[in-house]
């Protein structure tokens, strides 16, 4: 741990960029991850539609919850896949051999996972707006979604890289991830509901602070412990 690399910040950033670029390029060619995430997300919305009888009255209160449940479920699909690809094709070993700080690999994977999440969200939001006749494109709500997704990707990437190294793999990830995600979920759902209901910023601020605190804390923890996850 704490292995110094040649010219620290510049090479670190270029290593992160290389990992992100690799993931996005691979996804651009195969499209296997995003397509399954997207179809799955839309199916979840559909299921909620039937499960909750979304009449206009119920929609008002249920929308933030449905959105976040959709993101969380679709997100685990993506996290699992993005780590499983690395593991199955031996890419992870190759990445680990590269003479870069290992946390650069973590940040690269986390950023590409975040990118996939954001892409899915940018498709789900207009579809949901259209289907249920609500305007979800409000700056406050978008900020909440971004903050929540950052926390999700930070913890999710760390746990997914542990889960792929176990015998139960993809079954294990949601079990590991969801209990730790509760603060993000509560804060994100509450803040989203606040913005949708048009509450003043002062009422929503505590939830935004909580999201921000969670993001910072878990990025820091992942940065510190990722070396132990890939240590062999």
């Amino acid at each position: 741990m704490g292995r110094e690399t040649s010219s620290a910040p510049a090479s670190f950033i270029s290593a992160v960029r290389a990992v992100v670029w690799k993931d996005l390029a691979a996804e651009l060619r195969s499209r296997e991850l995003l397509s399954s995430m997207l179809v799955f997300a839309l199916l979840v919305v559909l299921i909620f539609n039937f499960a909750l009888e979304l009449d206009p009255q119920a929609r008002l209160t249920a929308t933030p919850g449905i959105l976040w449940a959709t993101f969380v479920f679709a997100g685990t699909l993506g996290l699992n896949r993005s780590m499983a690809i690395e593991k199955d094709r031996g890419c992870l070993d190759g990445l680990l051999l590269a003479p870069v700080d290992r946390s650069a690999i973590y940040f690269g994977k986390a950023i590409s996972n975040l990118a996939f999440m954001v892409i899915v969200e940018t498709v789900v939001l207009p579809v949901y707006s259209l289907l249920y006749n609500v305007n979800l494109f409000q700056p406050g709500l978008l900020l909440v979604i971004l903050l929540g997704s950052v926390g999700y990707a930070a913890v999710g990437t760390l746990l997914a890289s542990m889960a792929v190294q176990t015998r139960t793999r993809d079954v294990l990830l949601p079990i590991l991830l969801f209990p730790l995600l509760i603060p993000v979920l509560i804060a994100a759902v509450k803040a989203s509901a606040g913005f949708l209901a048009g509450l003043p910023l002062a009422d929503v601020a505590p939830w935004l602070n909580l999201l921000l605190a969670y993001d910072v804390i878990f990025i820091a923890i992942s940065f510190m412990v990722f070396d132990y996850v890939v240590e062999e």
């Binding site: 760390l158 746990l159 190294q165 509450k190």
Partner: peptide, 24 residues
């Protein structure tokens, strides 16, 4: 190693969970 990482993550997230529900 993995167990240690997970207990550490739980150790940090549970107080945040408590605070967030407390806010409710």
């Amino acid at each position: 190693r993995f167990g240690a990482i997970y207990t550490l993550a739980g150790f940090v997230s549970v107080p945040l969970t408590f605070i967030s529900i407390r806010l409710l």
